[in-house]
Design a protein around this nucleic acid. Structure first.
Lengths: 236, 236
DNA sequence: TCAAAAGTGTTGATACTACACCCATGG
DNA sequence: CCATGGGTGTAGTATCAACACTTTTGA
């Protein structure tokens, strides 16, 4: 029996969308592409190839650690993009993962690597319509994204919006203890629209098992908000 | 610059979950594995390798046509499974797609290939909890599935249940013209629970743009139901 | 005229939204 | 005591589910 590896096969890579919410906006790590690459744009999602006998999850962890120094973050698979012509060096299929972190964590990781930027993710469409997304730099200027990465960012926003209400995915953007206002800011950034405070608080407390800690935030002006945490270990 | 294909890379395959609803149950095509394979179970989702410079979509169409003779069916990506050890011949990563068809179409395709069976998909868990699924044969006996294919079927059911209410995916199980009772049967089979008729009719007509054709079904005993169709071209 | 399934109307419960209001803290 | 944001109560509205009911056909 001939080995299946005798067939000519595409290479397979993992691309990572490392996300946080900061300054009222959803942000994603992009990496400057090496000079001399003839196709596509200037910025791309960081990625790495899957080696023989390496799992997809191991590759995710390797890329995350190699690019940012971050060792542990929750991640989930988004989708797989097969587009021939994605990489000028040959046919590469990439499995895209979302890795979600509190902004304090991710900002440190980005600052540790001069090739990385934390782009603002922006979409034109409302709700879960779908379509491409833009990456904007700190001054609001669009950053040119390589290949289909704008579509990937669009799919990502659609996924986040769909899961936000019915899963605890929003809490992955926050540290272990957070105020309800923090959660609302995350939801507003992802949904791209403002939410009314009372309705949001109630839905949140109904849907998710939150526990009030009794501890209050410090350092703010005016009345300090109470800190909450997830009751059980509620992973996605 | 060295070619990326100099690196040792896993092979990549597409596996297909071809689905229909028949006899009040969700059914999926499985294929008898070749004799002499040392690992896993006896039945598996049909699949094929992705060739260099071939797209994922082309591979889906190729596998669908090669195994069943069916040329056109709507399909969508489910997820990618990286499990090392999935295939005894080496490290294979498989991208799993759902292909949904009316039962009349799929039954013909299965009968054309003696290696294929139309298994009944069964899950223990309610709602969108998640977990593995079973494949049962016509007599209700579980069929041994290879590798992680039971988990894949479970993920598939979870996906279908999640999308059923908010997308037109349920109509892909039906021919162009269908009765509302047909739609209810599809939903009940996928959700694994009975639904009350009046509530279901109303939700259906509210959520989706359906058009009554004025034509009624024929051949049945008792009062014939009206045939409906989707108003615009509502692809998923 | 009867059995079986198609299709509709009504009602009570639930969930959601919008708005107004009170509370706590720093200055 | 005032400005500001945290947090709560209430009332109107839309949505949903259960039930009873009428309609239509083949035998």
């Amino acid at each position: 029996m001939p080995s299946i590896f005798d067939y000519s096969s595409p290479a397979i890579a993992v691309d990572l969308a490392m996300l946080c919410v900061h300054g009222g906006a959803l942000r994603c790590v992009v990496m400057r592409r090496a000079d001399g690459v003839e196709m596509g744009g200037d910025w791309a999602l960081p990625g790495g190839f899957v080696h023989r006998d390496g799992s997809l999850d191991d590759t995710v962890k390797r890329v995350l650690h190699d690019k940012t120094g971050i060792s542990n973050a929750p991640f989930e698979q988004l989708a797989t993009y097969g587009v021939p012509g994605r990489d000028p060096r040959g046919h590469v299929i990439s499995v895209v993962y979302l890795a979600i972190m509190p902004s304090e964590v991710l900002i440190k990781g980005v600052e540790a690597n001069p090739e990385l930027r934390l782009a603002r993710v922006n979409v034109d469409w409302p709700g879960e319509t779908g379509g491409a997304a833009q990456a904007l730099d700190d001054t609001g200027v669009p950053m040119r994204l390589a290949f289909d990465h704008a579509d990937i960012l669009g799919d990502m926003v659609k996924r986040l919006r769909g899961k936000l209400d019915y899963t605890p995915i929003g809490f992955q953007f926050l540290p272990a203890r957070f105020t309800l206002r923090d959660v609302q800011e995350v939801h507003e950034a992802i949904l791209g629209q403002g939410l009314t405070k009372p309705a949001f608080r109630r839905k949140l407390l109904d849907r998710h098992a939150l526990r009030a800690t009794g501890v209050r935030e410090t350092g703010g002006a005016f009345r300090p908000a109470e800190l909450y945490e997830l009751s059980q270990d509620q992973e996605e």
